[in-house]
Simulated assay, not measured.
Amino acid sequence: MSNVLIADSGSTKTEWRLLRPNKRSKTIFTQGLSPYFLTAEQMAAILEKELKLPEDPDEVYFYGTGNANPANAKMVKGVLKKCFPKAEIDVQHDLTGAARALCGRTPGIACILGTGSNSGYYNGKTIVKNSPGLGYVLGDEGSGAYLGKRVLQYYLYQTFDEELKAKFENAYTDSASAILDAVYKQPLPNRYLAGYTHFLSGNRGHYMVENIIEDGLNDFFFQHLCKYRESWSKPIHFIGGVAHAFRDVLRELGHAYEFEIGQIHEMPMDGLVAYHKG
């Protein structure tokens, strides 16, 4: 038996789970390790500062955003190899992690709705179809960044009614100029935008809030799920904070589209642990 380290990394945070024979597992959270936003040196610095393990792993399975790009996966693997020189390292895209966590070894469609969004058809072994991910500027329909952008549009265009405007200004202190600066000039604007989904979660029931949520998630269904012919024959599963927070809307949309909505979880780690133990 060996020590197995599993990582689930999004743009915002990374969850690490160390599985040890005959001992309790250890969970640690660090910053997200996206190769689109961080250099190898920055990743290594984050791991050195934040990832404190009681024992070294023999095997590392890293599932992370951006790793569908071979160059990114190679960079991440290099960082991990320097941190764990004696371990076997396997780096996969976060969508593969979602599929393994949600579907196990059974075919289905796996979706990520977190800071960003993604989806793919999984044949029980690997992702064989993937709707193009265009990132938070051009795509990421249904994601936290996508919904947060809509919240800011409603506020800055003065579309909110007086009730919601007052609630927004009570919850957030950023001026219009500060918002634009954060989006266009500061690092990690996708995380900044996604932070405004909390405003939606906290104001459910207001028709404008419900419209933003339903429209944003419907865009994901229309632009992505409708492109898979398997959507009408295989279960569709979801992972991520946005998916979990608005799971009622996902199920309503699934009914409207005549899709079978399967599992909806906030985090994939328990599913990944079951997959690797199996």
Rank of each mutant, 00 (worst) to 15 (best):
M1F: 09
M1V: 10
S2F: 10
L5I: 05
I6S: 06
A7F: 06
S9P: 06
T12D: 06
T12S: 14
K13H: 10
R20I: 15
S25V: 04
K26Y: 13
I28Q: 03
G32N: 08
L33H: 04
L38G: 02
A40Q: 09
E41T: 13
A44N: 07
A45C: 10
I46G: 11
I46W: 08
K49D: 15
K49F: 08
E55M: 07
E55D: 15
P57I: 11
V60F: 10
V60M: 08
A68W: 06
P70T: 14
N72V: 06
N72E: 07
N72S: 14
A73D: 05
K74A: 15
V76S: 02
V79H: 12
A87N: 13
E88M: 12
V91K: 00
D94E: 08
L95K: 03
L95R: 03
L95N: 02
T96G: 05
G97T: 05
G97V: 02
A98G: 06
R100E: 12
R105T: 15
A110E: 09
I112F: 11
G114T: 02
T115Y: 01
S119Q: 05
G120A: 04
G124W: 13
T126F: 03
T126I: 10
I127F: 11
S131L: 04
G133L: 03
Y136Q: 04
Y136D: 04
V137L: 15
G139V: 05
D140P: 06
G142R: 01
S143W: 00
G144P: 00
A145W: 02
Y146F: 15
R150L: 10
Q153P: 06
Y155L: 08
F160I: 05
D161Q: 12
E163V: 11
L164Q: 12
K165T: 15
K167G: 04
N170L: 12
Y172C: 03
S177A: 14
A178V: 13
I179D: 04
I179P: 00
L180H: 09
Y184T: 07
Q186T: 11
P189S: 13
R191P: 02
T197N: 01
F199L: 02
S201H: 00
G202A: 03
G205Q: 02
Y207D: 09
N211M: 10
F221G: 07
F222Y: 14
L225P: 10
L225W: 03
L225Q: 06
W232E: 13
H237A: 14
F246V: 00
R247P: 01
R247W: 01
V249S: 05
V249G: 02
L253Y: 04
F259Q: 03
Q263A: 12
M267L: 13
V273H: 02
H276F: 15
K277I: 11
G278T: 08
